[in-house]
Design a protein around this nucleic acid. Structure first.
Lengths: 213, 213
DNA sequence: TAGATTGTTAATCGATTAACAATC
DNA sequence: TAGATTGTTAATCGATTAACAATC
């Protein structure tokens, strides 16, 4: 379907398209033109058409795009129907909130294990899953072959744990530790989330000479 | 100091520079060249010099940059010494985790109030702050003039609440609701955080034809 | 058919990279 | 001084925007 690799900006816009199309579906909008969608999303119509045409022509001249159909196609591209096994490591405040708050299933993921090294947490459960001791991680991975690890651990532990997880076969990291993982293996994908950076950006824009985004 | 507005990509890199320089300081590195820093951060040396020179020349030819000095300057630019009053609305899982996990102070912000509409939560406290009923929001804002609202509320409540908060004088939103706020007022800054989008991007990259970032 | 809107090519804009003179 | 590395200008690259022919 796609001939040349999709650029990062396009990829990052896909989940947002998917979200907006979901909203439109809920509003029972049947079809939408690139112009209308652009207006809603604060993008340009050109950009939207360019983006969609990275993957093929989903629209119809003179008509626009069918909302349901388009949403399904983008969902397909994003792999929302897959079932990627995820484990979460670090069941502190943030870990628990992510386990409870993020709808993994809707995004083609399934949270199958939560781990922590704190004996006080081990045995309790979050999001319907028992928190397991870190010592059982190896065995768990051998048995269940999770692909993604959600890291909610202190920065000092991150790199070492990531390396270990790679050796256990993990190939994706959703990293909330305050540390930028640097992985050499090109097959391993890392998504670093720095909430602090996001807050600082907001703070900067609020006080910058001429507020910009 | 700055003549023309700083571009978004540059702004988004500033907190990351600040973080890495903090690491270097902790490692007691005194000076660093753009080349070395680039290597560490996975950027190009050119880009780093360009970025810094948006704000003025902080380096010294033949020497490089003084780590402590540079970190202080970037901190200054980011406003880490300011004291922006923040309130958090929605003390569910995610709200509590953010209150507890994000170091507001280190980023020039101060969390001064937490609100929720759930009577079961009101009266309890998180991150050393009592959770207050939403009915007291107006009064609180009139008294304490917070500038930033952290929104950890359901998507349906977001836009309406944001509008109300703007009328109460708030000018910045750190928005975790699953809804892209669209604010017309150019003085109001919005930073939308979509954790779900981030997870989807990761999932896409893991399964995309040729994994890219 | 006429009107609308796409898909796609070309033009523009902006960000990154390369190069090098300035200078510590 | 010679070597190193910045600050800054020019060249390149890539993403966004504009334009328009194709077509529903």
């Amino acid at each position: 379907m796609s001939k040349q690799p999709i650029s990062t900006p396009v990829i990052r816009r896909l989940p947002r398209y998917y979200r907006f199309l979901g909203d439109l579906e809920r509003e029972q909008v049947e079809r939408i033109s690139s112009r209308e969608l652009a207006q809603r999303m604060g993008l340009s119509a050109s950009q939207i058409r360019q983006d969609f045409n990275c993957f093929g022509g989903f629209g119809q001249q003179g008509y626009g795009y069918n909302v349901t159909e388009l949403r399904e196609i983008i969902g397909e591209i994003l792999g929302v129907k897959s079932n990627t096994g995820c484990i979460l490591i670090g069941a502190g405040n943030l870990g628990k909130a992510i386990a409870a708050h993020v709808d993994f299933e809707k995004r083609g993921c399934r949270l199958i294990g939560i781990f922590d090294c704190d004996p006080l947490l081990v045995g309790t459960s979050t999001a319907g899953l028992p928190i397991m001791p870190l010592e059982t991680l190896d065995r768990f991975c051998e048995e269940h072959h999770p692909q993604v690890a959600v890291l909610c651990i202190p920065k000092d532990a991150a790199q070492q744990l990531a390396d270990k997880l790679i050796s256990l076969g993990l190939i994706g990291f959703w990293n909330f530790s305050h540390y930028d993982l640097r992985i050499t293996d090109p097959h391993v994908i890392v998504e670093n989330v720095h909430l602090g950076d996001s807050l600082m950006t907001l703070a900067y824009c609020m006080h910058a000479p001429s507020e910009q985004k």
